[in-house]
Design a protein around this nucleic acid. Structure first.
Length: 290
DNA sequence: TCTGGGGTCCTAGGACCC
DNA sequence: TCTGGGGTCCTAGGACCC
């Protein structure tokens, strides 16, 4: 099973002898009986087509104003034929920008893409064009991936009203840093690069990042770095719509040898206990004294 | 949907090293 | 003293996904 979001997953059934439709119906019935929820399922020879098949089934039940209990099967060999009449932006990787460019070229459906020479698409869209061509033909050989490594952890907040007050911005960054660090520690990870994200009142957004000499999972270090970065871009009193902080360059935390470093080892252990207490009894159970 | 939050991947330029 | 190529790391922005 590969979970792709909070409510979607791929299931590789190629090694199961039972008929695919039987498996799907059993799943759907189980979800309905146990969770009282509708679900849609697509069956195909690869992930791309299965995902689109799911959406097609879901849409057609919606059209009939029924709860979505779609079940769509695309027989092996029929992938391209199945995709051809569907709108181009149903394809994986075609967002608003690519969609607009395709429309300009007179391309509306996935079949229209498939009719273009691969070379032309590569000229127009670079490496993305190659995928576009392959996907439009129903070709996708990505395997099911059951485990992902976290690459980054971040927190961001959009304010209800634009904020000019340094105190509020710093307080927000402090909370966000705390949460990012907590998540790092919870997963036994640390990150080397701290990134600040900021959006002005005109919606322009920018990021500034810096790489630390050693990776960190520490609230305060992340916070101080974020504040420094903010100071490099924000003019005094400049209004802020959104602010956020993230950490990337993630790996296992490097623990200092505690030979002459008993202090930091001690504070790490203290942090561990604080984390455990907060996890169990809530954020308000314990705070640092000032 | 005049725009929320948390992610991934890609590109491009520059610094630096061998 | 100047030139060259390749690799890696870093930063910034953007497209895209759910």
């Amino acid at each position: 099973v590969e979970q792709i979001s909070i409510d979607e997953a791929f299931l590789d059934i190629s090694d199961i002898r039972e008929a695919p439709a039987r498996i799907a119906l059993d799943l759907q019935t189980g979800i309905k009986n146990e969770l009282h929820l509708p679900s849609s399922i697509g069956i195909a020879s690869n992930k791309l087509v299965a995902k689109i098949a799911t959406e097609v089934g879901k849409k057609s039940s919606k059209k009939k104003n029924e709860p979505p209990f779609g079940l769509t099967i695309v027989p092996i060999g029929d992938e391209a034929k199945f995709l051809a009449p569907l709108p181009a932006d149903m394809l994986w990787g075609v967002g608003p920008k690519t969609s607009a460019r395709l429309t300009e070229l007179g391309i509306r459906t996935i079949g229209d893409i498939a009719n273009w020479p691969e070379k032309e698409l590569v000229n127009l869209f670079g490496e993305n064009g190659r995928d576009l061509w392959r996907h439009a033909h129903g070709i996708d050989n990505r395997p099911i991936v059951t485990e992902y490594e976290t690459k980054s952890i971040s927190q961001e907040t959009t304010f209800n009203v634009d904020v000019r007050d340094d105190k509020t911005l710093e307080k927000t960054l402090r909370e966000q840093s705390k949460e990012v660090a907590r998540q790092l520690r919870k997963n036994d990870l640390a990150g080397k690069t701290v990134k600040l994200k900021i959006r002005w009142s005109d919606f322009t957004t920018l990021t500034r990042q810096t790489t630390l000499p050693t990776s960190t999972d520490n609230d305060d270090e992340i916070f101080r770095t974020a504040v420094k970065l903010m100071k490099t871009v924000r003019k005094p009193n400049q209004a802020v719509r959104l602010i956020g902080v993230g950490v990337s360059g993630i790996g296992a935390p490097v623990r200092q040898l505690s030979l002459w470093d008993a202090g930091s080892e001690k504070s790490r252990k203290l942090q561990e206990v604080v984390d455990q207490l907060q996890e169990k009894y809530g954020r308000d159970v314990i705070h640092r004294g000032e």
